[in-house]
Simulated scan of single mutants.
Amino acid sequence: MTSYAVVPFVTWLVAGSLKFFVNSIRARRLAFGLIGYGGLPSNHSAIVTSMAALIAFREGVNTPAFGVAVTLAFIVLLDANSLRRQVGKHAAAINRINAANGIDSGLRERMGHTRVEILAGIAVGVCVAYMFR
């Protein structure tokens, strides 16, 4: 039986590889410079979903562990869509203000995820958990 610690790690590898592949296609070059926060699929969403789904597959949904995993997943998903996107908007505004004043702040503007990116992360997490059930 695979350890519960292995599935999130494998999910991170799968989601990160998919994100690199998608970013490379969009950029029409190897996208090493585009690795980081944001993009499709959401790594964070994939990782927390993989654990919640694995617990659901192995132990069922009427367990305390599943409740904790779902709660954590909701917090991460909300953060990915709202808080981090707002941080990215603030970074963009600060970069514009600094550029107008001749300052290169270089703050990362792509921080959060769209709903599609989050849904793709959820799909990756469920698929990887299903493979390890």
Rank of each mutant, 00 (worst) to 15 (best):
V126T: 11
M131V: 15
A92P: 01
L83M: 12
C127Y: 05
F132V: 01
L40S: 10
P8E: 10
A99W: 01
F9W: 07
V10C: 04
A15C: 07
S45C: 15
I25C: 13
V126Q: 05
G16T: 13
D79M: 02
V6I: 15
V14C: 09
N23H: 14
M111G: 01
A31Y: 07
M131W: 12
T63C: 13
L13Y: 09
L77S: 00
V87M: 03
V128W: 05
E117H: 08
A93T: 07
V126D: 02
A92D: 01
G112L: 03
S42M: 12
G88V: 04
F21R: 06
P41D: 12
A53I: 01
L83E: 00
V61G: 06
F9T: 06
V48W: 00
Q86R: 12
V22Y: 11
Y4D: 08
A27D: 14
N101T: 02
R58K: 14
Y37Q: 13
A56M: 13
H44G: 09
S50D: 05
L18F: 06
T49F: 12
T49G: 01
I55Y: 01
A27S: 15
G67L: 09
V128S: 01
H44K: 09
I94A: 15
R84S: 05
V22P: 03
S82R: 14
T63W: 13
S3V: 02
G121N: 04
F32Q: 01
S45L: 09
N81I: 10
N23D: 15
S3P: 05
I97F: 08
R85F: 03
V68H: 05
I103N: 07
G67Q: 10
I103L: 12
A73K: 10
A120D: 12
A100L: 12
I94M: 13
P41S: 09
G112C: 03
M1A: 11
F132D: 00
T71R: 00
N62A: 15
V124L: 04
G121F: 03
R84T: 06
R29Y: 00
L30W: 15
P41H: 09
F66M: 05
I25G: 11
S50Y: 03
V22W: 11
G88D: 02
F21M: 15
A52I: 09
A56C: 10
G60Q: 06
A73D: 07
A46D: 06
P41Y: 08
A15H: 05
V68N: 01
F74C: 14
T71L: 14
A31M: 10
L107Q: 04
G106W: 10
P41A: 12
P41R: 08
G38F: 03
E117F: 08
